[in-house]
Nucleic acid binder design. Sequence first.
DNA 1: ACCTGAACACCGTTCAAGT
DNA 2: ACCTGAACACCGTTCAAGT
Lengths: 190, 190
Amino acid sequence: MDRKQLPLRADARRNRERILNAAARHFAAQGIDTSLEEIAKAAGVGSGTLYRHFPSRDLLLAALLRDSQEKLLAQAEAARKIDHPGTALQVWLKALQSHLRTFSGLPAPLLAAIKEQASPLATSCQDLLSITEELLVQAQEEGQAKASVAASTLFLGALASAWAADHAEALGTTEEALDALLAQGYLTEK
Amino acid sequence: MDRKQLPLRADARRNRERILNAAARHFAAQGIDTSLEEIAKAAGVGSGTLYRHFPSRDLLLAALLRDSQEKLLAQAEAARKIDHPGTALQVWLKALQSHLRTFSGLPAPLLAAIKEQASPLATSCQDLLSITEELLVQAQEEGQAKASVAASTLFLGALASAWAADHAEALGTTEEALDALLAQGYLTEK
DNA sequence: ACCTGAACACCGTTCAAGT
DNA sequence: ACCTGAACACCGTTCAAGT
């Protein structure tokens, strides 16, 4: 399928940009379940225009995540170059979790995306899962990660900890403490 | 404050029961975000009647959880009688997680309840946190749990794993594997 | 005292009319 | 080709009218 796309009319291109800016602000401030109508209003466009550019909330989200996603893939590349595979896995998981915390409420649609292949978030999610698997297997081959752990379990754990991270302070704990709890489970002892 | 309550008119009492039954079915089948209007319809009452009995979704939820909650408190009592405090903690956390999985989507309102004391779910949540703390401290005193771990972190971890548990199968992993990942982090080695 | 269902508010989504 | 905003649908919540 062609993905030609680009030659947007000047006003359309400007509107698209405005919508993305407003959405980034609102998603960051209120979480990803915030009202799309308000985003359209803040962007100074009619709600129909928002839907023309981003027919679903997931498509808008996917567009917003693109930057963070690319940064993450670069970090994956860096992790691959680390000698010690156990460390590489740890570095990767840390970067992954940071990505998953880009917006509050992000884990839920990402998880949903994995089930419904149709979602625009699905392929990128699959990529992240593949990278996790690749680095996990290498660590396991060197005996630096437990053989009993599956990549999907680790990935789900990362999603879960991102889900919880928003609320860590309110409960009197910290994101770091939560990460530490999770980080113990997959490494081989000592 | 008086909490006299009970002398309900016969029809009111019957309606209350019907609402609870319908809600239990719908919450179990669709998760706790399902439409209250549909629950009222399934119960054969007007929506106003549902709101008269349960002015907020959280109050309805709290009423539904009461049974499960009592069972859980009994399990806490049983855990306290176990000689080995590390085991007692493990048993408790297992029971807690099972409770948190009563309905899909339950972790979110429970977490929210801790922040807003006003919520009808808040006090019961605080109880669960207190029990976690009590059993954790005992395990720590015997050197069977890491001194660096906080009860709130463990509790948040349990909520997070309950959140993820719904989706474990879809991802090709299991609730057990996820639990195992989390279970490693708080015990002292060997 | 309690119930009902119409009414209101809010928001997601579509689409006819405009430029 | 793209935009606007009114229109529709859905659901949570309230309340006047009924018994």
